[in-house]
Amino acid sequence: MLGLEYFTFTQVWSPIVLALVLLITAGYFVLIGPLSEKYGQGEKVSLNRRLLFLLGLALLYMAQGGPVELLGHIMFSFHMISMALSYLLAPPLLMLGIPVWVWRGIVSLLRRSPLRTLKFFTHPVVAAIVFNGLFSFYHIPVIHDYVMLHFGVHRLYYVVLFIASVLMWWTLVDPLPDMAAGKGVKKIGFIFLNMVLLTPACGLIIFATDPLYATYSDPVVWSKAMGYCIPGDTTMLLSQFGGPQFFGYLEPVVDQQVGGILMKFIQEIIFASMLAYVFFHWYRQENRSEDDEEIVPVPEEYAPSSELKQI
Rank of each mutant, 00 (worst) to 15 (best):
G97L: 02
G97R: 09
G97D: 05
G97P: 06
I98W: 05
P99Y: 12
P99M: 14
P99I: 15
P99C: 08
V100A: 09
W101Q: 07
V102W: 10
W103Q: 11
R104C: 03
R104A: 00
R104P: 00
R104M: 03
R104T: 02
R104E: 01
G105R: 12
G105P: 04
G105S: 07
I106A: 04
V107P: 04
V107M: 07
V107N: 09
L109R: 15
L109H: 13
L109C: 11
L109W: 13
L109N: 13
L110C: 03
R111Q: 06
R111L: 09
R111P: 01
R111V: 07
R112V: 10
R112I: 05
S113T: 15
S113P: 13
S113L: 15
P114A: 10
L115Y: 10
L115C: 09
L115M: 11
L115A: 12
L115G: 07
L115K: 13
R116C: 06
R116W: 10
T117Y: 05
T117S: 02
L118F: 14
L118R: 11
L118H: 12
K119F: 09
F120D: 01
F120A: 02
F120K: 02
T122S: 02
T122C: 00
T122V: 00
T122R: 06
H123P: 00
H123T: 12
P124R: 05
P124N: 02
P124V: 05
P124W: 07
V125S: 03
V126K: 13
A127C: 00
A127M: 01
A127H: 06
A127G: 04
A128F: 04
A128W: 08
A128M: 03
A128I: 10
I129S: 01
I129T: 05
I129Q: 08
I129F: 04
I129R: 02
I129M: 01
V130H: 01
V130E: 00
V130D: 00
V130A: 00
F131P: 00
F131L: 04
F131G: 06
F131C: 01
N132I: 11
N132W: 15
N132S: 09
N132G: 03
G133S: 10
L134K: 06
F135A: 09
F135G: 04
S136I: 08
S136G: 12
F137L: 13
Y138R: 09
Y138G: 07
Y138T: 06
Y138P: 00
I140G: 05
I140E: 03
P141K: 07
P141A: 02
P141H: 08
V142A: 07
V142N: 02
V142L: 03
I143N: 06
I143H: 06
I143L: 05
H144Q: 03
H144N: 07
H144G: 07
D145S: 09
D145V: 13
Y146K: 07
Y146L: 13
V147E: 00
V147W: 02
L149K: 10
L149V: 08
L149N: 04
L149W: 04
H150S: 08
H150M: 14
F151H: 08
F151V: 14
F151E: 10
G152E: 12
G152H: 15
G152W: 14
G152N: 11
G152S: 14
V153H: 04
V153F: 14
V153D: 15
H154W: 04
H154K: 13
H154L: 11
R155W: 15
R155F: 14
L156S: 15
L156N: 10
L156F: 07
Y157V: 12
Y157S: 14
Y157F: 12
